[in-house]
């Protein structure tokens, strides 16, 4: 059980909340206390659009603890519209349909649970947009 840890990263996981540097304008995801470009501590939270495209992808057959029941599942690096690259699972898409460069949108899904009695961890995944544009 890692309840406080999951709770701490909720904003990032539920809503792709990153940070924007007030000095140089760099958008970071995951959120950072110090800007990853200029090192400034003047960063504010910002919810990202959830739009992006696939930079790379693969399939996980044996995942970390808690992911066994979902395997096999697709994972990807997604280049977000705001710039950052994010690692995430793909959902609602068949492996044969995935291509580098294809547009995706963020959805909130179950990531895993801490056993049958533990909390359910929800977070971002990506899928091909349901509505084009």
């Amino acid at each position: 059980m890692e309840v406080p840890r999951h709770w701490r990263t909720q904003s990032a996981r539920y809503a792709l909340e990153g940070t924007v540097c007030q000095r140089c304008g760099e958008t970071s995801f995951p959120p950072r206390d110090l800007c990853s470009r200029c090192g400034s501590g003047e960063v504010i939270a910002k919810r990202l659009s959830g739009r992006g495209e696939i930079y790379s992808y693969s399939t996980v057959f044996q995942g970390p603890n808690g992911f066994a029941e979902y395997a096999p599942y697709l994972v990807a690096l997604v280049r977000l519209a705001e710039g950052p690259l994010v690692a995430a699972q793909l959902t609602d898409v068949d492996p044969d349909a995935v291509q580098i460069g294809m547009p995706v949108e963020m959805v909130t899904r179950r990531l895993r649970e801490d056993g049958p009695k533990g909390i359910v961890v929800y977070g971002y995944k990506f899928r091909p947009p349901l509505v084009a544009g």
Binding site: T9, S56, Y57, Q62, P64, A76, A87, I100, L111, G123
Partner: peptide
């Protein structure tokens, strides 16, 4: 927090690199 917690394995991280 942001790789293994979303389901990436170490092999998958290398696979993402290789595919790209």
């Amino acid at each position: 927090d942001f790789e293994s917690q979303i389901g990436l394995s170490f092999v998958a991280i290398n696979a993402l690199l290789m595919r790209r």
